[in-house]
Amino acid sequence: MRGSNAQVIRGTSQADVLWHVLVFVFLLVYPWIASPFWTVQIGAQSLILGMIALSLTFLAGYGGMVSLAQVSVAGCAGYTVAVLGVNSFNMGLGWPWLAAVILAIVIATLFGTLIGAISVQTTGIYTIMITLAIAVGFYYFARQNYNILNGWNGFAGLKPPVIGGVNWRDPVPFYYLSLAVVAVAYFVVVYLRRSTFGLSLQGIRDNDRRMQALGFNVRAHRILAYTVAALIASFGGVLMIWLNGRISPGSIGIGPTIDILVIAVIGGLGHPVGAFIGAVLFTLLENFAIDLIASERFNLLIGAVFLAIVLFSPDGLLGLWQKLRQWTAPATH
């Protein structure tokens, strides 16, 4: 897959702008036409999963580094909010929400940077192995640690604050909160694609030795990419625990870790929007698998979809879309 997304960076075309405006307007009016279930369980859930997957798309698509520890970073932020803030086990320190959230994001970003500093020691598939080992290790750590992380049980009763008379836990406010955070993250990642940092990162992805010879500090760029990805993932992690109201080792286990990889790959690593396409498909399948195939066999279904995508369309649904466009408009190529 490496190199396949090394396409020429083109300017933002008018069609792209039109698409973005259309989708954004749709997302804005969506909660007014959808039921609370569709607003939160499908809408907000897809946005948040997509946000965590976006951090992986950024790392893998721009930097060529497939990290499986992004869920651990998100979980680190979630756990920190739970420990510092208020939770229903009376184990929280009862900090005000803003302080808890800020510190959570700082800690999780540092954690992600540390993971980066460890993983950039090696490259390619070694990164997958090392980050997977870190992710599974963090899961076992959270499960065994009863002193701080409350072991197997984790924490429950986590909710977004009430600010300015608005209860942000209600479906529509929570949806807009998620949408706002996600929109910022998305446009930052899109912007980074053409920034100096993003361009050198993509250069490193395509040929790290040449970039090194040109005088770029390859290691520092790679670690910084992990930092940016960790920042995105930790915001996703905070939203995630507000959505679920709870966090436990199960939320950062191998299942969610693989889910995020599946989402990013199904959507396609070539463009940030792939993360969200994958997330919508994943959430829909997860909720409606019961109509297609027995609900307890959801993993079989999603595994098969994933395998089919990896085997037949390595660039994900985005790749399929592009192929389709090339077929229908052969004259322009």
Binding site: M1, R2, V66, G124, I125, I128, I258, L261, V262, V265, R297, N299, L300, I302, G303, A304, F306, L307, V310, L311, P314
Partner: peptide, 23 residues
Amino acid sequence: GQDLRQTLVTIGISIILADVMLA
């Protein structure tokens, strides 16, 4: 020679195998 793709395939296989074994 497609390291990453092979790895992703093995992840897909492990998801499916785990579910089949559970069934």
